[in-house]
């Protein structure tokens, strides 16, 4: 009973994570400029990756594999803001200006 419930939960996590990954990918294509694309990449890096890895953790149960998955997740969450910040800083230095107030206002 509990096994089936955990299996179903991990299934939900994997599919939702994959969905958020695709949404982030679509956002990467649809957003108008570099700086708004950061937000789309953020969706895949946080919730997309997080849910997929949590789904795998539920599959693995209590073992060394789970610890490795936790490490991958923690590492991703620590490095993705750093990479985004480095990218933003380099882009500003490279004279890329953020596009502001796209629709009127």
């Amino acid at each position: 009973m509990t096994m089936a419930a955990i299996d179903a939960l991990s299934w939900v996590c994997l599919v939702t994570g994959g969905f958020f990954g695709i949404v982030g990918g679509i956002g990467l294509l649809r957003f108008p400029d570099l700086f708004s694309r950061f937000h789309a990449a953020g969706v895949t890096d946080t919730l997309g990756a997080g849910l997929v890895l949590i789904g795998l953790m539920l599959q693995a149960g209590w073992s060394l594999i789970t610890i490795k998955l936790v490490l991958i997740l923690a590492f991703g969450l620590f490095t993705s803001p750093t990479a985004t910040h480095a990218l933003a800083k380099a882009a500003l230095r490279g004279k890329v200006k953020p596009l502001l107030r796209r629709k009127g206002t």
Binding site: L14, I22, T44, V52
Partner: peptide, 12 residues
């Protein structure tokens, strides 16, 4: 399913 979703994201 998860592999396919990740591959689609990579393609995008």
């Amino acid at each position: 399913a998860a592999t396919t979703a990740i591959l689609v994201t990579m393609a995008l």
